[in-house]
Design a protein around this nucleic acid. Sequence first.
DNA 1: ATCCTCCGTGTAATCGATTCCATGACGGTT
DNA 2: AACCGTCATGGAATCGATTACACGGAGGAT
Lengths: 355, 355
Amino acid sequence: MASIKDVAAAAGVSVATVSRVLNDHPSVSPDARARVLGAVESLGYRPNAVARSLRTHQTRTLGLVISDVLNPYFTELARSVEEEARALGYSVIIGNADEQPEIQDHHVRTLIDRRIDGLLVSPTDGGSPLMLEAARAGTPMVFVDRWIPGVDVPVVRSDGRAAVRDLVAHLHALGHRRLAIIAGPAATTTGSERVEAFREALAAYGIALPDAYIGQGDFQAESGRRATERFLALPEPPEVVFAADNLMALGALDAIRAAGLRVPHDIGLAAFDDIPWFVHTDPPVTAIAQPTKELGRAAVRALIDRIEGRPPQSVTLPARLVVRRSCGEPEPPSPTATPTPTATPTATTSTRRNP
Amino acid sequence: MASIKDVAAAAGVSVATVSRVLNDHPSVSPDARARVLGAVESLGYRPNAVARSLRTHQTRTLGLVISDVLNPYFTELARSVEEEARALGYSVIIGNADEQPEIQDHHVRTLIDRRIDGLLVSPTDGGSPLMLEAARAGTPMVFVDRWIPGVDVPVVRSDGRAAVRDLVAHLHALGHRRLAIIAGPAATTTGSERVEAFREALAAYGIALPDAYIGQGDFQAESGRRATERFLALPEPPEVVFAADNLMALGALDAIRAAGLRVPHDIGLAAFDDIPWFVHTDPPVTAIAQPTKELGRAAVRALIDRIEGRPPQSVTLPARLVVRRSCGEPEPPSPTATPTPTATPTATTSTRRNP
DNA sequence: ATCCTCCGTGTAATCGATTCCATGACGGTT
DNA sequence: AACCGTCATGGAATCGATTACACGGAGGAT
């Protein structure tokens, strides 16, 4: 593979001049520039990014460590991150932690070893020493979706509190009172926050959230199945199960089907994180949708701000409730009108901006 | 960030010795080794992968360029690729082409600029000049899933021919005769092959595949929707639509629902590529499942063989039909027996190994 | 005509590792 | 005692770029 020396030789100039042409430095004569460009063309020369990075101390690369690639939510996030990064002249290297802290650490370590310019993380746990150390050492970092409390790193995430309130209002209006949740790992912020939001929303209706109605999941399908089986085996099973992510909802659906029950007739189901497939499941699943694309974009911008020396900003975007049929039929189908919410806290399907 | 010089200074040895310790070269005294290791530890030193790559001409990194991250099939492939690569001591950088040749080329170019050791590609098109050039220039390369004919690069893929025959047998047994397909782009091998396999399987039953029953898609949901709308508008719409990938099947489902029709009552649906969600759609979708995980593993092994100087091998694994309910009820539910295929070509749901 | 400035260019240092080669110490043979 | 091979070690070249610095020539100001 041709190097800058070959180009210099072919163009009859020094490597310095070649480099100047390539980085369009002003003081290069038109003649030299033309000869260099010609040589570049005919040799098919491409600068070696490795050598360049060594010298310049920057790779124009971002690392993105996500909790689970098989989760459509993260996949969409990854896509939007890559898109925005590409638009701003950066590449991104994705690391999939598979919800395992050791794998997450492995990725963080290799990414830092490769001297990526900055790191986007959706932490699987409460914060490994490695990550804390990296943050303290000054690696530009931004948390997306999940974060680690007490670490001074900007967070880009969505706030589901209002949407969870809307969801509970919706369920209450349908007459449901025994409401259960499949939580994510308590070590993750999204794992504990969603339970708290749910509990608070329930409290507004004087409904308690007993321990038996809190299933412990790990954001993966299998755990949703197990938690749901346990709910179903209860003397008084819940009327609705709210899964804290879409994969656990899938597992719940499995368990419900395996038990020979039907949604929403025998039991209702709702999920955090909306995905295209929820429109087509049997029945369509009521879900809380995050503005995933915007989240990805905002995260990249925050990180690049940080990298390029501008002050980065934390961003919180609202999530919204999307009502479908998995918790029961919403209203007697009134042929004309928009569904009118009752006097409960705002139950709405519309997007909210600037909460 | 500490460099090898800092370590050398702290340990009171030369950088050469530090390097020897780190790459466990035999001739280092136990004493020197201990001092170096101590210094490494106390400085939190990590070798700079960029500098190392520059010197050694290897990055221990693989590039993976896939056609669409939002497609669960590719997502699963990517995951298995990364897993196997990690097990073998390599990292992988994923590039998402979004089915657009220019983006694909962008990724191939940046990956080569970073001097990845090898490239795994599932080409979006019939072969851009860039890719051809890269192959000819000797970049270690392996095609996964899709490939470019006439290029001397190993291919790891699955053969759906038998499964498509099984599918047609299944449809025929259910009494369906008007069968349509939503094809992928003709420029991709999977785009054209699946149509051919379908046409041949149909021919075995004396059924033709008229042009009106071939929808032109691009492997994305939206195109599946449009193609299906066109089918439904036909004077004699098909009885079953076979989508050449799962995303187009999703689009088809959208279109069918929008038209107020029901699957399989009004129209049947089958898809290439099975995914967990197909179990829970309304109705569960009959699909052809690829051994995705094995494909990913085999591709990585082939590529690393090529990189490390062993002769790489093309691999073809069989796909298999998974019958669900989207094309009609399979059999009158006979309480005991396994469903007995009629005298048609083998209709089976079992996994086949070594075809 | 002299001097200064600016411009285009080349030489060489540098980034952080690996590795070839030279060197000196040590131990074993003869 | 002389010689030789082995081993641990350090010096320095190298990978392929960027960039500070030096230098010569051209042009403008005086």
